[in-house]
Structures are given as structure tokens and as C-alpha cells.
Design a protein around this nucleic acid. Sequence first.
DNA 1: TTTTGAGTTGTTCGA
DNA 2: GTCGAACAACTCAAA
Length: 476
Amino acid sequence: MPNKTPAIYWIRKDLRLADNRALLAASKDARPVIPVFIREDDSAGALGGAQAWWLERSLARLAEAYEKRGARLILRSGDPADVIFALIEETGAKSVFWNRRYTPDGIATDTALKRKLGDAGVQAESFAGHILHEPSKFRTKTGGPYKVYTPFWKALSAEARVPDPLDAPEELTTANAKPESETLSDWRLYPGKPDWAAGFEPLWTPGERGARERLDRFIDEFAENYAASRDRPDIEATSMLSPHLALGEISPALIWHGINRAKNLSAENRKKFLQELVWRDFCHHLLFHSPDLATKNWNDRFDGFEWVEDDEALAAWTRGKTGYPIVDAGLRQLWREGTMHNRVRMIAASFLVKDLMIDWRSGEEWFRDTLVDADPASNPANWQWVAGSGADASPFFRVFNPVLQGEKFDPDGDYVRRYVPELAALPAKHIHAPFDAPKAVLEEAGITLGETYPKPIVDHKAARKRALAAFEKIKG
DNA sequence: TTTTGAGTTGTTCGA
DNA sequence: GTCGAACAACTCAAA
């Protein structure tokens, strides 16, 4: 006899049907399932603007996918506990399932809810699936968390097997009760005016199917050059899977096994990509063990660092008007497309933190709001890494030179031309340092520095010296 | 407990 | 133009 008592499946950052343990548990033995997405009003569920755009589209597709399988996605707003208990009341559900999340706020919310549900005699069960391994799984021999990536990677690849991904349920059963749902248009996740997301549309296909297609395409076309080309922002060479991963449209386990099974990859390319995927786990490992990662210096020596408060410089950086083409191209790509090439993220971040000496938290905040792949673990962990305050931090003397980096990784200047059109007519030789170009060359390209394109807001050489001197003060 | 080798992503300087 | 060394010293993780 099929079980007629419905189960609630609480959807968070797992907007997929495949490899979804909570959904499978909820719908086991043809049990009617009530999938609910809750727009949380506290920080546990808050998303930046770009990711809210993504979420709207992803939820629309998820709703279609549920409908196709005979279930209905419910949208609700408010405190999760209130919403879930209301749904229990309305539907007679006796169990609630979800996939775990790893932010401190999220963990607190979920732990409290689990207790409350238990007290009320409702079964509550949570599952893994957002990262490859539970962040608590790995410990050093002395019992502490890993603070360096390479040993983490070694431990992970030596000891652990990533669980095989599970298929999506073929069919779902609808509950007899038909709980009310809010609508996506009510939520106004996508602010129409001004339409800052117009440039997102051609680039992205939010949703589970878009994620799978992206993975397949990466494996077919790009993965075999991954190690050699991944640092080139002018070349299509990366997986672009991060926004799909961030909202759980695809599971990292599915990617892991997909890459491992691919026949066309050299060992080097395979390893390189998997290492990047494991970085995501490492960031979650760090966040799990340092819940303040997004707000406090992981290395508290940096608490004494003399950051500069300069709203004008910060604004120039966010708008892509620093006068350093590779930095400006990056920030403008971010604004236009909701993403920035990884190499350029490092250059742009280094520029904010070292050249402008602006607190990494300002950069982290900007990225959080503008990146479609904003991730509560990766974003702060990587900002802290660049700043030097984080785990496995770069040596203090590693200050990216925006001109050299541009010349090295965007050798023809195509990336800059794409996002900084006012420099498009400059020859490659000068495109990364228009301020050093001969007058005639600038004239020929129709550029007047300070008018059509900004003069550098700082002198890199001097800025580098200043940053090194500031670092000198907090060491030892 | 002590020792040992190593640490994602770089730049500059001088030969 | 190319190449190797220097750039601090420290902390991490395992043996």
C-alpha cells in the first residue's frame, strides 16, 4: 500500500531533481511530496542581486520540472519554522526532509528547526549533497581542521570516495492537500528598471538542464585544454559551472564522476579540474571551522592592518574606472554578465586590497551582490586568500602587477577590448598600459586619457611599496 | 617532542 | 630577451 501521508521537502540551495537525497527520501515508496522553497527574510537565505536574478529563473524551471513529474512546487515567504509548521498543519505531513547547508546562520536555523520538529513528533532528516564531502569529515592527524590546501587535497583523494550520484525520481505523487503558493512575480526578484541584467540573458541558462548542458559541453570541448587555458580570460576554457553549483542545480558529485568518466581527458587536465572542484570543499571546510570567515580576519594578525577608507577609489573600482585596463575589464564584465574570469578576479582583488589598500570586506560585499555564483564559503575564503589574511595565503610580497598580468594572460588584449570598448583601437602592445603609450598611438586610437578613459588612480609601483610597508607593520 | 619539507595562482633585479 | 635568486619568516602537517 502506498503511503498517503505526505512529506515536506524543503528546498534551499539544491534546485535540482537529480542526485538529490532529500527529495528521494521524501518521495520514497510513492509517498506524496510537497516541495517548498522558502524565501527567508533573515540572513540565512539572503541572496545578492545578481543571484536573485538567477534564482527567479531557476525556480521557474524547477516548477516546470516538478509539474512534469506530477508534483507542485510551493513558494512561501517568511521564517522557515513558521512556514513549515503551517504546511504541516495544512497538509497533515508527518515528515520533513532537506539537504544540508553549511553557513553558520543556516546551520543554526536548521538545527533549531530539527529540534522543534522532533518535539512536535514530526520526523526531520537532513542529507548531504551540496559539497563532495561533509566539512567535518577531514581532520589532520592531530585532530584539527586543515589550514593548507595541499594536505587537504591529499587526504581527500587518498581516503575518500565521492558517493555515486543518484538518478532523479521518475515520477512523483501529489498530495491530496493543495497548499497555497505565492508566485514568482510577487517576489520581484528581478528588478526590471534599470535592466542591469540584460547582459546576463545571452550567457546563462539557469536551471538543472542548463547546468547539465554546460557540463557536457565543457567535457566535450574545453576540458582537454583546461590546465593550459584556464588562466586565459580571452579564451573560452573554463566550465562556467559555478553559478549552477552555487544554487545546487547540479551536484558536485555528478561533476566529479562526470569528469572522472570522461575519456578525452589527460590525467593532468582531469586532476587540475578536480582540484578546483575540491577548492570549493576546502572553502566550506574553512567556513565550517571558522564561522566568522566572511567578517573577521582568519589570521587575526590582520586586525591591526591599516586599511584605507576611500569611497571614491572604491567607487572607481566597482565601476571599472581605475585606469588599469585588465582591472576595469574585469569589473565591467562582472557588472555586465554577473561573472568575472577567475584569473581576473585575482588581479582585480589584489588591486583593491593591495594597490588601493581597501579592506577586503568591501570587495567581498561587492562580489556577493554582483556575482551570479556568489558563494558564502568561496567568496570570503578567496578574498581573504588574496588579502593575505586567509588560509594558505599568498606570501606578502606577491602583489599582482596589473600590467604584467594583462600582458601575460590576455596577450592580444581581446579580453580588454571586449569589456573596455574605448580602448579597442589600441594595439596589443599598449592596451594594458595606455598611460605609457606614446602620444601618437593614443591619438591614433582616439583616446584622451582623463577624458575618454581614466588616468590610473594610483601608481602601481608606489602603491606596491605602500602595501608592503603596511604589511611590515603587522608582521611578527 | 622535534624535525623536516613544503606552502594555488608573483615580481623584481641583476647577470 | 631570458633566467635564477631573492623577497621574511612562519606555520602547517606529517613523520
